[in-house]
Design a protein around this nucleic acid. Structure first.
Length: 605
RNA sequence: GCCCCUGUAGCUCAGUGGAUAGAGCGUUGGCCUCCGGAGCCAAAAGCGACAGUUCGAGUCUGUCCAGGGGUGCCA
């Protein structure tokens, strides 16, 4: 919101340079002054001094001391600038020009803006570009574990950030609803559990995981198995594969059973999406992309992009490096159709991309997918480019490190997973205990709701406050900590702000900031003013972490302010009014930041 | 072999080429006659190594060292 002032002064600096036969500075960038309690903007003159030094050296053979020269320039320009409206003070320090804002004007202007814009404070101008974000692609019939949660919360937060930054968003999910793993569950159900149906959405979903693990154990070769066991196991495996072929052939009975079990799994997934307030716009089922994918293979062969080596007993292959004329191996080559003419993941991803571009008119496509699929996606993007999709250049793989457990890697096959729902339930239990201890007056009917908001807030922040490309070891006690660098800490700042305003009976419609602001107030205002640019940065970098860091810093600043600066108890009514509006603005900014993280901002906790 | 990611405090992590590298957990010590202690204030402790680019490098480049992942009929 201070851009006009910054631009005006930058123009004056350029004028100064041309009037004094100095080189023209490049882009003049303004940063916040990095010292606590100071409020203003800064720019440095090292680059200008370095350019000047090189020019002087060319003519005279002697170079300048850049550090000293930068300080000289800062001093001269500080003197050249007259008293600028909106600023109260300027200084030249160690090569930097610092300009200090006039707190009264800007505080009022910022606080008024935040309160007036409400939940739109920080929203970017429309960009006129449509972005599809694909995330939350769980394997069906395996239940939803915390690795899936990392994917889902990262994708949802990214979607919110990019949308708030001004882009049109399409949320897409791509559930893996078919494959040998899925058929394995259908097989064991049909063989041993036909007709059974546990009660409860999550009980049913988790039960499917249980019988899956059982099936994997049955089908796995064991050490020292007897000939009878071996025969039995092989017979089971044959049954399973026959079942897959029946599914493939569209056998009505198999399809019906598959749809029933898939429905159970989808019920659970939808319930989790509800808990996380995720509303998908598009569902691409893997089972539905199979046919379009086969058609694409023919097209790629016809265009000379793919080589059909099936006549020689091979598969259909795209030799990417070779087609691009690369000497060194980079994208390598990959198979897009098996020798038996069935499709692969890559084939389906190509089909999916075509649908995204042609049916949904996505200008840009973001894939929130495990980092281990990086190679695969680079190949897919490259093939799309060769195929002639200009959007391929705007495809982006937001990879994330895998989530493991203190006892090792998670494995659905072995049943060694930590389920999202189990952690969420435990989170609610712990928050309920906390509420009983710290806020016993809270109405009984509000507790469950608040407990869920706070518990999920802790889980979400624990995921989003670590950079997406880092692996993490999931420790439930760390993730469900409520103190310090956590979601509840931020939510609590919001609750405290809310509490002040409620206790004061609301906040006034107008207030002036013409009193000496404490450094705590200045820091709060300064930080709030940076929210809109922070949103843009997060969207540009595809990183919800930027918002997570911001939200924590804002909460921390508010907690300090809260502790030191009296609001309701302030005697001077004009100061009290201004501070109440300041608190209202902080409450709003905290709520807006939390919303981008898919974390609720409860009024009490 | 080739490609990708990571290495910052005892631990877990932040850190748009810029001034004094920041948090949390843990440790130690303070703070409730005061708007909610899920809080505040303070102490001790750190950039894997070596070169290079630059006025300036935790940040960019290169080479090592250490760890993880990927690398044609899985997803």
């Amino acid at each position: 919101m201070f851009e006009p002032q910054q631009k005006r002064i930058a123009d004056k600096i350029r004028t100064y340079c041309s009037e004094h036969q100095l080189p023209q500075p490049g882009e003049i960038t303004w940063n916040p002054i990095p010292f606590s309690g100071e409020w203003g903007i800064t720019t440095s003159f090292f680059q200008l001094a370095a350019v000047e030094s090189r020019e002087v050296k060319e003519t005279t053979g002697k170079s300048l001391n850049v550090t000293e020269r930068a300080q000289q320039l800062a001093t001269d320009i500080a003197a050249f600038l007259s008293d600028e409206p909106g600023f109260v003070r300027r200084e030249a320090v160690r090569g930097y020009l610092n300009l200090y804002y006039s707190p009264a004007e800007y505080s009022k202007s910022l606080v008024d803006t935040i309160i007036q814009q409400g939940f739109d404070f920080g929203r970017g101008d429309p960009k006129g570009e449509r972005v599809m974000i694909e995330y939350a692609q769980p394997n069906m019939l395996h239940s939803f574990h915390i690795g899936h949660f990392r994917n889902a919360i990262l994708g949802e937060s990214l979607a919110r950030v990019v949308e708030f930054a001004g882009f049109d968003i399409i949320r897409a999910t791509y559930p893996g609803d078919i494959g040998l793993g899925v058929i394995t569950v259908v097989w064991i159900y049909q063989k041993f559990y036909q007709g059974q149906e546990p009660q409860g959405i999550h009980e049913r979903g988790q039960w499917l995981l249980k019988i899956y693990v059982e099936a994997v154990a049955m089908l796995q070769e064991k050490e020292g198995e007897t000939p009878e066991e071996k025969t039995q196991r092989e017979a089971y495996d044959t049954e399973r594969r026959e079942l897959y072929h029946k599914w493939d052939a569209g056998d009505p009975e198999v399809r019906a059973l598959w749809l029933k079990l898939r429905g159970w799994s989808l019920d659970e997934l939808n319930d989790i999406f509800n808990m996380l307030a995720i509303k998908m716009d598009v569902w691409f089922y893997e089972s539905e992309v199979d046919e379009p994918a086969k058609a694409i293979v023919d097209e790629l062969i016809a265009k000379g992009i793919a080589d059909d080596e099936r006549p020689q007993g091979g598969a259909v292959i795209v030799h990417i490096d070779e087609k691009l004329g690369l000497k060194k191996e980079k994208y390598r080559s990959n198979i897009i159709l098996r020798s038996d003419s069935t499709t692969l993941y890559l084939t389906k991803d190509l089909a999916l991309a075509k649908i995204k571009f042609e049916t949904y008119h996505a200008d840009r496509s973001i894939y929130v997918v495990d980092v281990r699929q990086g190679m695969h996606l680079q190949q897919a993007f490259k093939i799309l480019e060769m195929w002639g999709f200009p959007q391929a250049l705007k495809c982006y793989h937001l990879g994330y490190g895998f989530v493991s457990l203190p006892e090792g890697a998670m494995s659905a096959r072995k049943g060694r997973v930590v389920l999202f729902k189990d952690v969420a339930d435990e989170a609610v239990r712990r928050v309920m205990a906390e509420i009983a201890e710290k806020n016993p007056d809270m109405a009984e009917d509000a507790r469950q709701n608040v407990a869920q908001q706070v518990g999920l807030g802790a889980m979400a922040f624990a995921m989003l406050s670590i950079d997406n490309n880092k692996d993490m070891v999931y420790d439930m006690n760390t993730a469900l900590n409520f103190d310090g660098h956590t979601g509840p800490y931020i939510q609590n700042a919001h609750v405290r702000a809310n509490s002040i305003i409620n206790k004061a009976g609301g906040f006034p419609a107008q207030a002036e900031f013409g009193y000496p602001l404490t450094s705590h107030e200045v820091q709060l205002i300064d930080l709030m003013s940076r929210f809109p640019t922070t949103v843009q940065q997060a969207a540009q970098e595809y990183r919800p972490l930027v918002i997570a860091n911001y939200a924590y810093e804002l909460a921390s600043t508010f907690h300090s302010f809260y502790h030191v600066v009296a609001v309701i108890q302030t005697e001077n009514p004009a100061v009290r009014a201004a501070r109440l509006r300041l608190v209202a603005a902080a409450r709003q900014t905290l709520a807006n930041a939390l919303r981008l993280l898919d974390i609720e901002a409860p009024p009490v906790m």
